[in-house]
Design a protein around this nucleic acid. Sequence first.
DNA 1: TGCCTAATTGCCCTAAAGTACCATGTGCCG
DNA 2: CGGCACATGGTACTTTAGGGCAATTAGGCA
Lengths: 209, 209
Amino acid sequence: MEYLFITPTGRLRDRWQQAFPAAKAVVSPADVGAATSGTRGVIWLDLSVLDEQERVTEIEAAAGFGWPVVALANTPSEGEALQLMNHGAVGYCHVKAAPEQLREVALVVAHGGLWMPPELMQRFVALSLRVVPAQPRIETELNELTSRELMVAEQVAHGASNREIAEALAITERTVKAHLSAIFDKLGVRDRVHLALTMNNLPTYSTIN
Amino acid sequence: MEYLFITPTGRLRDRWQQAFPAAKAVVSPADVGAATSGTRGVIWLDLSVLDEQERVTEIEAAAGFGWPVVALANTPSEGEALQLMNHGAVGYCHVKAAPEQLREVALVVAHGGLWMPPELMQRFVALSLRVVPAQPRIETELNELTSRELMVAEQVAHGASNREIAEALAITERTVKAHLSAIFDKLGVRDRVHLALTMNNLPTYSTIN
DNA sequence: TGCCTAATTGCCCTAAAGTACCATGTGCCG
DNA sequence: CGGCACATGGTACTTTAGGGCAATTAGGCA
């Protein structure tokens, strides 16, 4: 197993060396081919000095080599993680991660896994849930809604006002309110904001506290 | 490292035995405590005969034990995978996966990784990105908010009422309203529901129409 | 020091949202 | 047929939200 770090300085950080004594460093994805000899390995990409555009290009170039690519971020963020993973990264951690941590990550990605900080992982999964047809825990409660109530709830999920909903369903604002009261009761939410968040599988103030 | 399979039959499948000769089997998450002795291990949950409700409950129960939990599905589906992962699973594969594959999965999840079939993994990442497109849109506009305004906006993103925000920030409801007005103006949203959705990178009624 | 921004709040007012109580009409089921 | 769930609203009331106008305070800066 080879460990190749792509970093603008062209020098290995101490922690990288500690994690993988045989690690090598190159300055660009273009040098990967020349620096590797085996068939299995992990590529680490230091994002420190790259702008958003470059990150994507470099990740793609590195991923094109066929080895799992781990992005090393200065200030890990959800958006960046997702973006990089979408362009081929299978790992995402802090540049200053401890050697033991790096070895864990290497082990995971080398065996086909995905690695990122636990808190990011959680957000990641929660986010995905929002765009997938087959839905979660709310679904059970959603079944308790009548067809009409469901229509109203879906409109609120997109931020519609009572008036807009009334127009869309060709009923009175009063009726919309009636449906809403029933919805709040059945789903156990207190107002339209919580309903909107809940419908989108997002945590609410109440959930957190 | 221990390997514990939770399966309704209470019997290990041949492939499981092959993958982990020392594996054990129990019929319910409740038996996990009694069947384990070490501090590190992986729990495998056979979803074969469980309905949607049970899957979630069992996954949560199993995850509560502290060991990584891998869901074994009869007919893997994107929605199911996400749902289970959202409830604590960190792995998802076919019940009939080959022994070598099971060992790969075990290795990955035991080291803090996430594992699912490659094609699912890809969809997974792509889906997430749809929700967080690199967050250019909001992120940029969010920078226009003052620190105080940002605090208020974040509270609204979780469904807090003006009163709750006022209490949290130790200011008056009137002031919260003042900040909100500024926020609505800067971010171009019309009310708190849209703000909540926008803060969570979700499309709104206005966006759609 | 004087100007500017940000934060804070009061008073007042309008509009939305949400609730309570009640009534009508329709379709389905035992 | 009588009961029941659901959809629809009327009247009326309370609570939130949101905004117009104005004033105060604190910190930064030319």
